[in-house]
Protein backbone atom coordinates (compact mmCIF):
# COMPACT_ATOMS: atom_id res chain seq x y z
CA UNK A 1 0.00 0.00 0.00
CA UNK A 2 1.21 3.44 -0.92
CA UNK A 3 -0.36 6.59 0.48
CA UNK A 4 1.01 10.12 0.46
CA UNK A 5 -0.89 13.21 1.55
CA UNK A 6 0.44 16.59 0.53
CA UNK A 7 -0.93 19.73 2.21
CA UNK A 8 -0.82 21.71 -1.01
CA UNK A 9 -1.89 20.15 -4.28
CA UNK A 10 -0.76 23.43 -5.87
CA UNK A 11 2.87 22.52 -5.10
CA UNK A 12 2.54 19.25 -6.97
CA UNK A 13 0.87 21.09 -9.82
CA UNK A 14 3.87 23.43 -10.01
CA UNK A 15 6.23 20.45 -10.11
CA UNK A 16 4.21 18.99 -12.93
CA UNK A 17 4.24 22.27 -14.86
CA UNK A 18 8.00 22.33 -14.44
CA UNK A 19 8.61 18.93 -16.04
CA UNK A 20 5.84 18.34 -18.56
CA UNK A 21 7.51 20.39 -21.30
CA UNK A 22 10.51 18.09 -21.22
CA UNK A 23 8.90 14.74 -20.50
CA UNK A 24 5.85 13.06 -22.04
CA UNK A 25 5.82 10.34 -19.44
CA UNK A 26 7.85 9.44 -16.39
CA UNK A 27 8.19 6.88 -13.62
CA UNK A 28 7.67 8.01 -10.05
CA UNK A 29 9.74 5.77 -7.78
CA UNK A 30 8.21 5.56 -4.33
CA UNK A 31 10.12 4.29 -1.30
CA UNK A 32 10.35 4.97 2.43
CA UNK A 33 12.55 7.97 1.63
CA UNK A 34 9.95 9.63 -0.56
CA UNK A 35 9.12 10.03 -4.22
CA UNK A 36 11.91 10.23 -6.81
CA UNK A 37 11.83 10.72 -10.53
CA UNK A 38 14.73 10.61 -12.95
CA UNK A 39 14.17 10.91 -16.69
CA UNK A 40 15.80 12.24 -19.83
CA UNK A 41 13.94 14.28 -22.42
CA UNK A 42 13.26 12.62 -25.78
CA UNK A 43 16.49 13.92 -27.31
CA UNK A 44 18.58 12.77 -24.31
CA UNK A 45 20.13 16.23 -24.04
CA UNK A 46 18.74 16.97 -20.57
CA UNK A 47 17.90 15.01 -17.46
CA UNK A 48 15.24 15.81 -14.87
CA UNK A 49 15.78 14.69 -11.29
CA UNK A 50 13.01 15.21 -8.75
CA UNK A 51 13.20 14.34 -5.08
CA UNK A 52 10.22 14.78 -2.74
CA UNK A 53 11.16 13.72 0.80
CA UNK A 54 8.68 11.61 2.73
CA UNK A 55 8.81 13.93 5.74
CA UNK A 56 7.62 16.81 3.54
CA UNK A 57 4.25 15.08 3.31
CA UNK A 58 1.51 15.37 5.93
CA UNK A 59 1.12 11.64 5.80
CA UNK A 60 3.39 9.14 4.06
CA UNK A 61 3.19 5.38 3.93
CA UNK A 62 5.05 3.12 1.54
CA UNK A 63 4.97 -0.56 2.50
CA UNK A 64 6.83 -1.74 -0.58
CA UNK A 65 8.94 0.10 -3.13
CA UNK A 66 6.72 1.01 -6.03
CA UNK A 67 7.32 2.46 -9.48
CA UNK A 68 4.41 4.31 -11.02
CA UNK A 69 4.73 5.11 -14.72
CA UNK A 70 2.51 8.03 -15.67
CA UNK A 71 1.61 9.99 -18.74
CA UNK A 72 2.27 13.57 -17.67
CA UNK A 73 -0.37 15.13 -19.93
CA UNK A 74 -2.96 12.86 -18.28
CA UNK A 75 -1.60 13.69 -14.84
CA UNK A 76 -1.92 17.39 -15.68
CA UNK A 77 -5.57 16.84 -16.56
CA UNK A 78 -6.13 15.29 -13.15
CA UNK A 79 -4.42 18.16 -11.33
CA UNK A 80 -6.35 20.72 -13.34
CA UNK A 81 -9.36 19.41 -11.39
CA UNK A 82 -7.90 20.43 -8.02
CA UNK A 83 -8.57 23.71 -6.26
CA UNK A 84 -5.61 25.91 -5.38
CA UNK A 85 -6.06 25.36 -1.61
CA UNK A 86 -6.86 21.66 -1.82
CA UNK A 87 -4.82 18.94 -0.20
CA UNK A 88 -4.03 15.92 -2.36
CA UNK A 89 -3.74 12.29 -1.32
CA UNK A 90 -2.04 9.89 -3.72
CA UNK A 91 -2.93 6.23 -3.21
CA UNK A 92 -1.98 2.97 -4.90
CA UNK A 93 -2.18 -0.68 -3.95
CA UNK A 94 0.96 -2.84 -4.29
CA UNK A 95 1.26 -4.07 -7.88
CA UNK A 96 -1.71 -1.96 -8.91
CA UNK A 97 -2.19 -0.74 -12.45
CA UNK A 98 -3.97 2.43 -11.37
CA UNK A 99 -3.30 5.30 -8.99
CA UNK A 100 -5.91 7.43 -7.22
CA UNK A 101 -5.71 11.13 -6.49
CA UNK A 102 -8.09 12.55 -3.91
CA UNK A 103 -8.50 16.32 -3.61
CA UNK A 104 -9.99 17.76 -0.42
CA UNK A 105 -11.02 21.37 0.06
CA UNK A 106 -9.81 23.00 3.29
CA UNK A 107 -13.09 22.64 5.18
CA UNK A 108 -13.91 19.26 3.65
CA UNK A 109 -16.84 20.84 1.83
CA UNK A 110 -15.74 19.26 -1.44
CA UNK A 111 -13.93 15.98 -1.97
CA UNK A 112 -13.15 14.61 -5.41
CA UNK A 113 -11.17 11.62 -6.57
CA UNK A 114 -9.66 10.59 -9.88
CA UNK A 115 -8.29 7.21 -10.77
CA UNK A 116 -5.65 7.14 -13.48
CA UNK A 117 -4.18 4.21 -15.39
CA UNK A 118 -0.49 3.55 -14.83
CA UNK A 119 1.94 2.76 -17.63
CA UNK A 120 4.76 0.26 -17.89
CA UNK A 121 7.73 2.39 -18.83
CA UNK A 122 11.14 1.13 -19.74
CA UNK A 123 13.00 3.66 -17.65
CA UNK A 124 16.76 3.54 -17.43
CA UNK A 125 18.48 5.13 -14.47
CA UNK A 126 21.73 6.97 -14.92
CA UNK A 127 24.47 7.27 -12.34
CA UNK A 128 25.32 10.91 -11.69
CA UNK A 129 28.93 11.22 -10.51
CA UNK A 130 29.90 13.58 -7.70
CA UNK A 131 31.41 16.71 -9.23
CA UNK A 132 33.61 19.47 -7.85
CA UNK A 133 32.12 22.38 -9.74
CA UNK A 134 34.27 25.31 -10.90
CA UNK A 135 31.49 27.82 -10.29
CA UNK A 136 28.29 27.72 -8.26
CA UNK A 137 26.00 30.69 -8.83
CA UNK A 138 22.90 31.45 -6.77
CA UNK A 139 20.52 34.04 -8.14
CA UNK A 140 16.84 34.97 -7.91
CA UNK A 141 14.87 32.48 -10.02
CA UNK A 142 12.79 35.26 -11.58
CA UNK A 143 15.95 37.04 -12.71
CA UNK A 144 17.29 33.87 -14.32
CA UNK A 145 13.98 33.31 -16.14
CA UNK A 146 14.02 36.91 -17.36
CA UNK A 147 17.59 36.69 -18.69
CA UNK A 148 16.96 33.41 -20.52
CA UNK A 149 13.73 34.74 -22.01
CA UNK A 150 15.35 38.00 -23.12
CA UNK A 151 18.43 36.43 -24.70
CA UNK A 152 16.44 33.64 -26.38
CA UNK A 153 14.95 36.24 -28.70
CA UNK A 154 18.32 36.72 -30.39
CA UNK A 155 20.02 33.35 -30.58
CA UNK A 156 19.70 29.63 -30.11
CA UNK A 157 22.42 29.34 -27.49
CA UNK A 158 23.50 31.16 -24.38
CA UNK A 159 27.10 31.31 -23.21
CA UNK A 160 27.37 31.41 -19.43
CA UNK A 161 30.75 32.80 -18.34
CA UNK A 162 31.67 33.10 -14.71
CA UNK A 163 34.62 34.88 -13.17
CA UNK A 164 35.14 36.25 -9.68
CA UNK A 165 33.80 39.61 -10.90
CA UNK A 166 30.44 38.16 -11.81
CA UNK A 167 28.48 36.05 -14.22
CA UNK A 168 27.82 36.95 -17.85
CA UNK A 169 25.09 35.53 -20.07
CA UNK A 170 25.67 36.13 -23.81
CA UNK A 171 24.02 35.27 -27.06
CA UNK A 172 24.43 36.00 -30.74
CA UNK A 173 22.17 35.61 -33.73
CA UNK A 174 21.29 37.02 -37.13
CA UNK A 175 20.27 40.45 -35.82
CA UNK A 176 23.16 40.94 -33.41
CA UNK A 177 24.31 40.10 -29.92
CA UNK A 178 23.12 40.43 -26.33
CA UNK A 179 24.94 40.35 -23.01
CA UNK A 180 23.69 40.44 -19.44
CA UNK A 181 26.21 40.78 -16.62
CA UNK A 182 25.32 40.20 -12.99
CA UNK A 183 27.68 41.27 -10.26
CA UNK A 184 27.76 39.57 -6.89
CA UNK A 185 25.49 41.39 -4.44
CA UNK A 186 26.20 42.11 -0.80
CA UNK A 187 22.63 41.90 0.35
CA UNK A 188 23.20 38.94 2.64
CA UNK A 189 20.09 39.68 4.72
CA UNK A 190 17.92 38.69 1.83
CA UNK A 191 19.64 35.64 0.44
CA UNK A 192 16.90 34.81 -2.03
CA UNK A 193 17.28 38.25 -3.66
CA UNK A 194 21.06 38.07 -3.90
CA UNK A 195 23.52 36.97 -6.53
CA UNK A 196 26.11 34.79 -4.81
CA UNK A 197 29.07 33.37 -6.71
CA UNK A 198 31.31 30.63 -5.40
CA UNK A 199 34.16 30.38 -7.91
CA UNK A 200 37.08 27.95 -7.84
CA UNK A 201 38.14 28.74 -11.40
CA UNK A 202 36.63 30.72 -14.28
CA UNK A 203 34.39 28.79 -16.64
CA UNK A 204 32.61 29.53 -19.91
CA UNK A 205 30.12 27.10 -21.41
CA UNK A 206 27.44 27.18 -24.10
CA UNK A 207 23.89 25.87 -23.65
CA UNK A 208 20.71 25.60 -25.69
CA UNK A 209 18.17 28.38 -25.06
CA UNK A 210 15.27 26.03 -25.64
CA UNK A 211 16.23 23.78 -22.74
CA UNK A 212 17.11 26.64 -20.40
CA UNK A 213 13.69 28.12 -21.12
CA UNK A 214 12.02 24.82 -20.27
CA UNK A 215 13.89 24.69 -16.96
CA UNK A 216 12.59 28.12 -15.98
CA UNK A 217 9.07 26.66 -15.89
CA UNK A 218 10.15 25.70 -12.34
CA UNK A 219 10.41 29.36 -11.31
CA UNK A 220 7.13 29.32 -9.27
CA UNK A 221 8.60 26.58 -7.05
CA UNK A 222 11.39 28.65 -5.55
CA UNK A 223 12.63 32.24 -5.21
CA UNK A 224 16.19 31.16 -5.83
CA UNK A 225 17.94 29.00 -8.40
CA UNK A 226 21.43 27.51 -8.27
CA UNK A 227 23.54 27.05 -11.41
CA UNK A 228 26.54 24.71 -11.09
CA UNK A 229 29.12 24.77 -13.88
CA UNK A 230 32.25 22.84 -14.69
CA UNK A 231 34.11 22.15 -17.94
CA UNK A 232 33.08 18.94 -19.71
CA UNK A 233 30.21 18.31 -17.30
CA UNK A 234 26.48 19.00 -17.68
CA UNK A 235 25.14 22.22 -16.19
CA UNK A 236 22.99 21.68 -13.09
CA UNK A 237 20.03 24.03 -12.61
CA UNK A 238 18.57 23.42 -9.17
CA UNK A 239 15.35 24.64 -7.58
CA UNK A 240 14.75 23.87 -3.90
CA UNK A 241 11.12 23.10 -3.13
CA UNK A 242 10.63 24.53 0.38
CA UNK A 243 10.14 21.83 3.05
CA UNK A 244 9.65 19.15 0.41
CA UNK A 245 12.75 18.51 -1.68
CA UNK A 246 14.30 19.66 -4.92
CA UNK A 247 14.02 19.65 -8.68
CA UNK A 248 17.29 19.49 -10.62
CA UNK A 249 17.84 19.74 -14.32
CA UNK A 250 21.05 18.59 -16.02
CA UNK A 251 21.93 19.95 -19.45
CA UNK A 252 24.75 18.77 -21.70
CA UNK A 253 26.85 21.68 -22.93
CA UNK A 254 27.24 22.48 -26.61
CA UNK A 255 30.76 21.88 -27.83
CA UNK A 256 32.82 23.07 -30.82
CA UNK A 257 32.67 20.56 -33.64
Amino acid sequence: MFEARLASSATFKKVLDAIKDLLNEASFDCSDAGIQLQAMDNSHVSLVSLNLKSDGFEKYRCDRNLTMGMNLASLSKVFRCSGSDDTVTIKAQDDADTVTFMFEAKKQEKISDYEMKLMNLDQEHLGIPETEFSCIIKLPSGEFARIVRDLSQFGESIVISCTKEGVKFSTQGDIGTGNVKLAQTNNFDKEDQSVIIDMQEPVSLTFSCEYLNSFTKATPLSNQVTLSLCDNVPLVVEYQIPDLGHLKYYLAPKIEE
Partner: peptide
Protein backbone atom coordinates in the same frame (compact mmCIF):
# COMPACT_ATOMS: atom_id res chain seq x y z
CA UNK B 1 29.66 24.94 -35.33
CA UNK B 2 28.55 23.89 -31.91
CA UNK B 3 27.44 20.34 -31.53
CA UNK B 4 24.92 19.27 -28.93
CA UNK B 5 26.16 16.36 -26.84
CA UNK B 6 23.74 14.11 -25.02
CA UNK B 7 23.49 13.36 -21.31
CA UNK B 8 24.59 9.80 -22.02
CA UNK B 9 27.98 11.13 -23.13
CA UNK B 10 28.48 12.06 -19.46
CA UNK B 11 26.34 9.82 -17.28
CA UNK B 12 26.39 6.05 -17.58
CA UNK B 13 23.42 3.71 -17.22
CA UNK B 14 23.24 2.17 -13.75
Amino acid sequence: VRHQKTIKDYFKTK
